[in-house]
Design a protein around this nucleic acid. Structure first.
Lengths: 340, 340
DNA sequence: TTGCTAAATGTAAGCGCTTACAAGTCTATC
DNA sequence: GATAGACTTGTAAGCGCTTACATTTAGCAA
């Protein structure tokens, strides 16, 4: 389908009997136009159903009031929630959010980043810091501010707005060990191109080492983000000898999937097996037994990320990373190991 | 921050010692350029880190290979899943997806639609058909094809790719009534600006009328999309006299919230109270008892919607609506009413 | 070699908008 | 009534790209 006849600035100008400059001013800085003229112009605008061509505007004005976000997938509730909060702040600031998703593929992510930049995104929200250096170079060459969310590291490479996945996971594992568990299994999310998943594994290992246990005894299985995969993974772990008494999961979905499967195999949770999650999505408090997990302030993270981005655009300020706190939410799925 | 110096087509042309036209051709229709030249040009492109300015391209070429989608919220799993599938097809066709969310607000949705159109979206995915006529006019004036998803109506007003919310809800309610329930309550999603939610209520009423019960006995409460609100609503319904023996919910989240709350109030599900959902999201099979609900082919819907859109763009074809099938998934939360 | 066709490349006119600068219009003051 | 100064509006030069059309080059038959 071809545009039959989209009205342009010039059409409006002709209709209102003014110059294109005046129409443009009416739209962008109305105070510069005397009321009478403005009214006439706005009337023509609505009569013609005019709306400005974005590309042309961006080309001429060199700014777009657009923020881009590239997330791995929309199907993960944590991103959805964080992004919703992000979007709220973006709107409050009169900007528009453009979202693209990368399906956890690095090549696609790069394409999407370039794409959003080419579309004139003034700033970018990125998830995690695991990507090729040349992308960061590209962004800095272009002078495009960006925030790395869902991750936090204590260095100045990027502006982080996130939490420390590693130490959060460590805290959870430590709690498990302190309850007396020694045979621990882990169901991790896929670690490829995913620093959050990797850090969570490292955190668990940290705790194990620090408590004098043997890291080699930790059996880690990676699984896709689904209940079913969590179930399959737990089945595998339960077939091990000696069988683990606690299973740390890289996220809540895997944990719930594991829990359901274990129960369907006749295993009592937490009496015979403890299971923990990560993220604290809503489903945790709705399953039985409810899931002990790590609370992550997703909404707050989204809000903060957006604010940081606007601050950076405003003042060309250097990165001011935000380190958000997480904490263990104790529910029913974690208990001391069974006395054997 | 200002762009320090973004390379343009002209810079590349100078570097490669060709005209801008040749560079453009290398990028858009490489077969028109002899190999040797092309190599030289592409080398310059990557040396300079050039990527084309999207606005300028759109302005000159009058097409953008961009599909826009406006969804009510990303926080609802059903949209996320459908959109992910939608996006896959969009990518396969070499186009890019731009997503905006409207927070169920009609004014915001209109803004977002105009925004995406101004940005040059070649086609649009819309959710539901409940919006001002002037928006449809706007789209048809501009010749922008669009698909209305998640809804289906037997008329030719739009190209629907969805399912019949009303008859699906009716089917579920009929099943409930046929099990012997006569005192039925409903927890609906917010119906404002939401034809899906409204249709689901209507469907339940259809079934009631058709089975000779009194529609006025149906107590409908509208609730926000959250477990907690589902819980509050069920508490209210349970306080009614006579107390309902079955509660139809407008979506799974409300149903699960209702079920949990009812159980925490000491009510046995389904022995004392039946509860049903709508959508068949993953959580249904993970709660206890598992939730009887209506299965909706969200992914398939997303895929189909995308295909329809491309077909429309290709052939200027008239709307070819797709009516997708839904069906009741019988799980544990629905049973015959208690013998009183 | 010449002449002709086809392929490769270049030229330049916009696409619709913003904005620096020029020009015009008032008002108020002398 | 003339004139400076303050507003308001108009003029026109691009922004970076695509593409119709013009030009050059290459390939090949006669």
């Amino acid at each position: 389908m071809k545009n039959p006849s989209v009205p342009t600035l010039e059409d409006v100008a002709r209709e209102a009997n003014v110059s294109t400059a005046t129409v443009s001013r009416c739209l962008n800085s109305p105070e510069k136009v005397v009321e009478k003229t403005r009214e006439r112009v706005l009337a023509s605008v609505s009569r013609l159903g005019y709306s400005p061509n974005f590309g042309a505007r961006a080309l001429a004005a060199k700014r777009t009031d657009t923020i881009g976000a590239i997330i791995p997938t929309m199907e993960n509730a944590i991103f959805a929630r964080g992004l919703q909060a992000f979007q709220e702040v973006v709107s409050e600031n009169g900007a528009t959010l453009l979202v693209a998703s990368s399906a956890y593929r690095q090549d696609l992510e790069e394409t999407q980043i370039r794409n959003l930049v080419a579309r004139g995104a003034d700033a970018l929200l990125l998830i995690g810091d695991d990507r090729d250096d040349k992308i960061y170079e590209f962004l800095s060459n272009r002078g495009i501010p960006y925030v790395v969310a869902w991750s936090y590291r204590d260095d100045d490479n990027h502006c982080f707005v996130g939490f420390d996945n590693r130490s959060a996971a460590k805290e959870m594992a430590a709690k498990i060990i302190e309850l007396g568990h020694t045979r621990i299994g882990m169901i991790a999310g896929l670690t490829r191109n995913n620093d959050r998943a990797r850090d969570r594994v490292l955190g668990v290992k940290d705790a194990i080492t620090e408590h004098g246990l043997n890291v080699d005894d930790l059996h880690v299985i990676e699984a896709e983000y689904s209940f079913a995969e969590g179930g399959n993974a737990v089945e595998h772990l339960l077939s091990l000898a000696p069988r683990p008494t606690a299973i740390v999961c890289g996220n809540d979905i895997l944990a719930v999937g594991a829990m359901k499967r274990a129960r369907s195999l006749g295993i009592q949770i937490p009496d015979q097996l403890s299971i923990t999650g990560f993220d604290d999505i809503e489903v945790c408090s709705v399953v039985e037994p409810s899931l002990t997990t790590i609370h992550v302030p997703h909404r707050n993270m989204g809000k903060t990320a957006a604010k940081s981005l606007f601050a950076m655009m405003e003042s060309e300020a250097i990165c001011a990373s935000s380190h958000l706190e997480t904490y263990v939410v104790e529910r029913q799925s974690l208990a001391a190991p069974p006395k054997s």
